Computed example of a mutant assay.
Amino acid sequence: MREKVAEALEQVRPFLQRDGGDVELVDVDDTGIVKVRLKGACGG
């Protein structure tokens, strides 16, 4: 599951970076809850 989420984030990462932000995968738990950290312009 973690690998699929990471692949999906790689697809949206260029769009976030174009606007001065980024995304970091923090955790994917056993129930499927995904936690990410938004950085830069996306942080707020």
Rank of each mutant, 00 (worst) to 15 (best):
E10W: 05
D19K: 07
I33R: 15
L25K: 10
R2D: 15
Q17H: 03
D29I: 04
D29L: 04
L38R: 01
L9V: 05
I33H: 13
F15R: 13
G21C: 00
E10P: 10
R18Y: 09
V23C: 05
V28I: 02
T31A: 15
R2S: 15
A41R: 05
D30C: 15
G32V: 04
L25D: 10
K39L: 15
E10M: 08
L38M: 02
T31F: 14
L25R: 09
T31V: 14
V26S: 05
T31N: 15
V36I: 03
K35L: 09
V26T: 04
V5Q: 08
I33L: 13
L9M: 05
R2P: 10
A8C: 05
K35F: 10
E24Q: 06
V5M: 05
V26P: 10
G43D: 14
G32R: 04
D19T: 04
A41M: 03
L16H: 06
R18M: 11
D29P: 07
P14Q: 03
V26L: 04
G40Q: 03
A6Y: 11
R2L: 04
G20S: 00
C42K: 12
A8V: 05
V36C: 02
E3C: 11
Q11R: 11
V36D: 00
D27I: 04
G21M: 01
E3M: 13
D19N: 08
F15H: 14
V5I: 06
G32T: 04
R13Q: 09
D22R: 02
R2W: 07
V36E: 00
A8M: 09
D30H: 14
D29T: 05
G20Y: 02
Q17M: 05
R2A: 14
A41S: 14
L9P: 12
A6E: 15
D29E: 04
F15G: 11
K35I: 11
G40D: 05
G32F: 01
K4Y: 12
L38N: 01
E3W: 14
E3H: 14
F15A: 13
A41H: 07
K35G: 06
D27F: 07
E10N: 13
D22V: 00
L9Y: 06
D19E: 06
A8T: 06
D30Y: 07
E24C: 03
R18K: 15
G44E: 11
